[in-house]
Design a protein around this nucleic acid. Structure first.
Lengths: 236, 236
DNA sequence: TAAACTATGTGTGTTAGCGTACATATTCGC
DNA sequence: GCGAATATGTACGCTAACACACATAGTTTA
């Protein structure tokens, strides 16, 4: 079995990959597409390849905040095997691209019957929890510049290049701040020579400096994700 | 088997309870006790009876924030079965009381071998994730009064009475705000006749009004926890 | 190429929460 | 009961982010 371009799928045993492959469907995800809505029952799960999906909590008054980001290191739809079947959040495509789609029932079946598959999914879930928890702390303590930096790092880590297609308005929705706040923060980063941007396009040109502008939250999440991923070396 | 006074243990099949009971040890947890430290390997898990445990993320500079609360509806130490063995947070006793303690390896064993046990633990984990995520949103958008109200509700839901033993200093650590901010917010709630407090003791005297002072976050988390709990009706 | 739309920039006043400093009140140890 | 330790109250200036208003600059459509 060749590279499946998604860390979780790659970590499966060759056997499991063979079982899985015929069930996977490659689909395109377009920017802004809502994969599932708050409390909606999930019919499919998605393993991003080069797309990024954000999990957003949306309040009654419409204000929102991202609680986690999922790229080719993960899977969208953990509620399927966690037993709840839905979650009170929205999953929205933050960066257009492709993903493998799998019927929810198939994942659930394999999760229940295959211990390896289960461990894989649970370890990933734990790293997702860490990300969410760190977001909570970050929202409490850090400035918009720090959070924007963290967010950009999380994004480019999940993309093949350092460019992302994303308006400041959308970033503001993710971070749960005003669009003007993002304009200001992005302006600062640009003045520092860390990024350049123009109308819907952002390029990171100095990653080390971006890391230094970010808070420790990025590092904590990354380190924990790496630690958990290191358990998941491929077996055959 | 009588009532075990912890929702999760109660939801086990009678068989499972019989297996479990000899392994459980009733322990006292004192206020402020650290159950486990950041990235510390877990030797035991704890099922609170009338105690409350907070999961805190602590930053390098010492500032902190609570990401979830665990009472007799849950278990402290999910990392044991999620596969990571540790998490980058601290678990600290927020309200003194008792808990059942179980060796980590026992829980892990039963989690892997007993599908019922597994589903139970995973559903609970999902509700914990919801709580963490909602905390992230709440930290972003809501005032100290709202957050304090939410926090008080979460606490008294897990206690037998409406009184809690807790200094404003500790609450401030949980919420990740200044102690003075808590003093001010608590003063407002007292002036409104919602709570009374004196030196380390807080009493909720008008719960409905406390709910109206809180943000929607409390409701969202509670509803989701109830939904997930409703799956876990005891089987025999 | 003009008009409509979308994205970004900028300014002004407001406010919640912060940091700091210190005062007062309550409880504990001896 | 007295001093030390701990908990709470209050005040002042400061700052980041807010809400709102509007200007400018690209991009799409007709």
């Amino acid at each position: 079995m060749g590279q499946l371009k998604n860390t979780l799928l790659n970590a499966l045993t060759t056997d499991a990959q063979h079982r899985m492959f015929p069930l996977l469907q490659r689909v395109n995800l377009s920017l802004g597409e809502v994969i599932y809505e708050t409390s909606e029952k999930l019919d499919y799960v998605y393993f991003p390849i080069d797309s990024i999906v954000s999990l957003l909590y949306v309040m009654i008054d419409g204000s929102s905040a991202e609680v986690s980001v999922i790229g080719n290191e993960g899977v969208v739809g953990i509620a399927v095997f966690m037993g709840g079947e839905s979650t009170p959040n929205r999953a929205i495509v933050q960066s257009a691209g492709t993903a493998y789609r799998l019927p929810a029932c198939e994942l659930r079946r394999q999760f229940n019957s295959e211990p390896d598959m289960r461990m894989l999914m649970l370890r990933y879930t734990q790293s997702l929890i860490t990300q969410t928890a760190q977001t909570a702390v970050c929202n409490r303590h850090h400035s918009i510049v720090q959070q924007l930096s963290r967010w950009l790092l999380l994004s480019i880590d999940r993309l093949p290049s350092n460019n992302l297609i994303m308006t400041q308005e959308l970033i503001a929705n993710m971070l749960g701040v005003r669009r003007e706040g993002v304009t200001e923060a992005a302006g600062k980063l640009q003045k520092l020579g860390v990024i350049t941007y123009k109308r819907g396009h952002i390029s990171v040109i100095d990653r080390p400096q971006l890391e230094s502008q970010s808070c420790e939250c990025y590092e904590v999440v990354k380190r924990e994700a790496d630690r958990l991923e290191s358990y998941m070396e491929k077996k055959t």
